[in-house]
Design a protein around this nucleic acid. Structure first.
Lengths: 245, 245
DNA sequence: TCAATAGTGTCTCTGAGACACTATATT
DNA sequence: AATATAGTGTCTCAGAGACACTATTGA
């Protein structure tokens, strides 16, 4: 009996994925934060084959029993590595080829996440691999990574820098409460160039993705600064034009 | 002997992908063209289970023996359906969940392609499924598609409309030789609103992604128009600002 | 009073959009 | 000449950037 004569029910009953050569499919994360005046990516040292001992992006296989979709896999991996559960997370791009993994044809859904500089406590123990924050220089990560992860990081950095030009994304790289000067500093760190204060504030105000924490200010040995937080239910704002010189 | 004690060689020799529950992984294409003053997507009618008889996006499984990477799979599928081999092709986004395919956990790398209105001869015969161009209305494709393909099309349309605002992409939707008025018409069709001629031409000239075909003009019962082609080796130009009202 | 940072006001210049104009073919 | 489309010139207005100014705290 040929497949063409089956009902959908019968077809599904006879279907067996293991009869085919399928690619390995995983999810990898590029997790960014800002610390010590620089952009950093989270790397883990592989504790198992292949590429044992090399630095790599956190990630792993889709758990077809527990993960309802790709985002769920990414969120699970993120939680396992950082303990953070609701940061900014967006799918970056797929990477797949016959050569990127020695085990065979493999494809990965790369995600990129932004987490606040106050949430960078890494998870240790419980069989977790060694993890560290690695700083991004001018030209991306300058370290040998396992598989094609160096290319994935480069793509993510490019995407982040590009999006910073015209979105409110960098706000997710800060602690929950921050001043406008804090925010401007993050933009400058990610972009790698200074921004005019006046123009910056005009744009931020116009974007309207922040809310004043009324009555709360940060004090130092100078004029106190108003504290802000990201307006809830306000995902990413697109500015009308590119972030100033 | 535990995995931890193996060399990488030994580990790879013992590795068997079929020992794991892996998701189905495919590549699907959203192929756009412009014809009859409207944006169209290529759909195929499924000739096999699952979703037999329903309209769906062209696509299929990665051939781990023939395809070197994801782009190769996408190009192969594109060639099989349209006969076109070197158009504009870009990865759109991954879609994966336990419910999108009745066969089980499945993930797809969606691509989107733009092909010229002179190259829309569809491939028939050779076991090809029925195929048709389906027009995109104001709000996307308004037709029931198999799996989650309606969502994929909606995402692709959104991405296309968005990119049209600030890139030279629509030039790939035209025949090889075209006039500036042709190009403007395509922008207007994709965006769904009129554009000022003068502003449009200023931007296109500034973008510098076209070259005049010297001495070649299109004639009608009016002033003849200069013909242009896409400057070779000029992929996508990003305009400084958003495409005018 | 000074140092240091927060926050605002103003000017200029560029570039997008609106719109009217000129140009050149066919009929 | 009329018509139809190609292609250009000019004016206005908004917004970004530059930069200088004022404000407010602690030391």
């Amino acid at each position: 009996m040929s497949t063409a004569d089956l009902t959908e029910q019968e077809y599904l009953a006879s279907y067996n994925i293991h009869a085919f050569d399928v690619p390995l499919t995983s999810v990898d994360l590029v997790i960014f934060t800002v610390r010590e005046q620089a952009l950093h990516v989270l790397l883990v040292q592989r504790g198992a084959h292949p590429a044992k001992g090399q630095w790599a992006l956190p990630g792993g296989f889709i758990d077809v029993r527990r993960d309802v979709d790709l985002d769920a896999t990414a969120l699970r991996k993120l939680r396992e590595k950082t303990g953070v559960s609701a940061p900014y997370l967006e799918q970056l791009q797929g990477f797949g080829s016959s050569t990127r993994d020695p085990r065979g044809w493999s494809a990965t859904f790369a995600y990129f996440a932004l987490i606040g500089s106050d949430q960078i406590e890494l998870q240790h123990g419980a069989g977790a691999d060694a993890a560290c924050w690695h700083s991004i220089s001018e030209h991306g990560a300058d370290i040998d990574l396992a598989f094609d992860h160096a290319m994935i990081v480069a793509t993510a950095v490019q995407r982040l820098r590009n999006k910073v030009e015209y979105t409110s994304l960098p706000a997710h790289l800060l602690a929950e409460e921050f001043t406008l000067s804090d925010l401007q500093r993050v933009y400058e760190i990610v972009l790698g160039r200074p921004i005019d204060k006046s123009a910056f504030r005009k744009r931020v105000k116009e974007g309207d993705f922040l809310e004043e924490i009324t009555g709360k200010q940060r004090h130092g040995s100078n004029r106190p600064a108003q504290l802000y937080r990201i307006r809830s239910g306000q995902p990413t704002v697109f500015f009308s034009r590119t972030m100033g010189a």
